[in-house]
């Protein structure tokens, strides 16, 4: 398994790196993983060390995906390090807090550049290497981490939801354009997921409990559960799945009717 994973911190990206490495090594195959982050947090070096301890070849690369040259440079580094590429996981995403009324245009552009344009550029640069991969018998696979925010708008998070909606369509369009090359492109849309970064923030037990209670399954997801969906979509078991945005949210995105005051579904569903 030769993979490039963006957004390599201890969240969905990190869990995906560990999962892909463990699966490959368990099959007796080498695992070569390139992971990338902005370098603002110490997670990347720690993850690379953990991957190496498992027996994987791992390389951490830092850079800013909003930079229009970085995606191509990153993919070329990954292809050189891994000797090709079987899988690309576009997980890095920029968040933004702010109302649409007040947001500066530069911020809008930046979130779009990281969340949508970088994914297109990463995938486009990786296309020849993925086409040459034998992961799916012929051709490799791409998984893009979208968000249920791409289906349900997230007010006051700037253009986050809008970029994710664009990303869902980009997944579909790449799937249509590259299917003939044997490259499958799918999305995973996480719901609430507890990452290391969020775990630090969610110290308030009462808030955490209220958040869990609002979810149909009564709990937020673990990054490993998102990684399992990503690993499945990259695998041969998903050989006919193409252009799909797989929602991994424990049915939260469909539960809006339970929030109407006095609704009977509210009474039954949330015990």
């Amino acid at each position: 398994m030769r993979a490039l994973v963006t957004g390599g911190s201890y969240g969905i990206g990190g869990a995906t790196c560990l999962r892909l490495a463990k699966d490959a090594l368990a099959r007796g195959e080498p695992a070569k993983i390139v992971l990338t982050a902005t370098g603002a947090r110490p997670d990347l070096a720690e993850l690379v060390a953990e991957l190496k301890a498992l027996g994987a070849d791992a390389l951490g690369v830092t850079g800013d995906l909003a930079d229009r040259d970085f995606p191509a440079r990153l993919v070329r580094e990954a292809v050189t390090f891994c000797g090709g590429l079987d899988a690309l996981v576009c997980n890095a995403g920029a968040r933004y807090k702010g109302a649409l009324l007040e947001m500066p245009i530069d911020d809008w552009d930046r979130v779009f550049a990281v969340n949508a344009r970088a994914t297109w550029l990463l995938c486009r640069t990786a296309h020849p290497a993925l086409k040459a991969s034998a992961l799916n018998k012929s051709g490799g696979a791409i998984v893009v981490v979208t968000s249920i925010g791409g289906i349900h708008p997230l007010p006051n998070y700037g253009p986050y939801s809008t970029t994710k909606a664009a990303l869902v369509m980009l997944v579909e369009q790449m799937a249509n354009e590259w299917a003939r090359d044997g490259i499958r492109v799918n999305g995973v849309a996480p719901g609430s997921t507890i990452t290391r970064e969020k775990a630090k923030v969610q110290v308030d037990a009462q808030t955490a409990a209220m958040r869990a209670a609002a979810l149909p399954m009564g709990r937020v997801s673990e990054p490993s559960e998102q990684a399992a969906a990503i690993a499945f979509l990259l695998s041969r078991d998903a050989s006919y799945i193409n252009g799909h945005n797989l929602v991994v949210d424990g049915a939260f995105g469909q539960s809006v009717m339970a929030f109407s005051a006095g609704s009977h579904s509210n009474v039954i569903g949330r015990k």
């Binding site: 579909e172 799937a175 249509n176 299917a179 719901g191 149909p216 399954m217 997801s221 673990e222 559960e225 998102q226 399992a228 969906a229 690993a231 499945f232 006919y240 799945i241 193409n242 252009g243 799909h244 797989l246 929602v247 991994v248 949210d249 424990g250 049915a251 995105g253 469909q254």
Partner: peptide, 18 residues
């Protein structure tokens, strides 16, 4: 493996419907 996937309809159509 799908422990947090609930209520979804997974399309397995090779991209045809889109």
């Amino acid at each position: 493996e799908a422990s947090y996937i609930n209520g979804q309809n997974l399309t397995v159509d090779g991209g045809f419907a889109q």
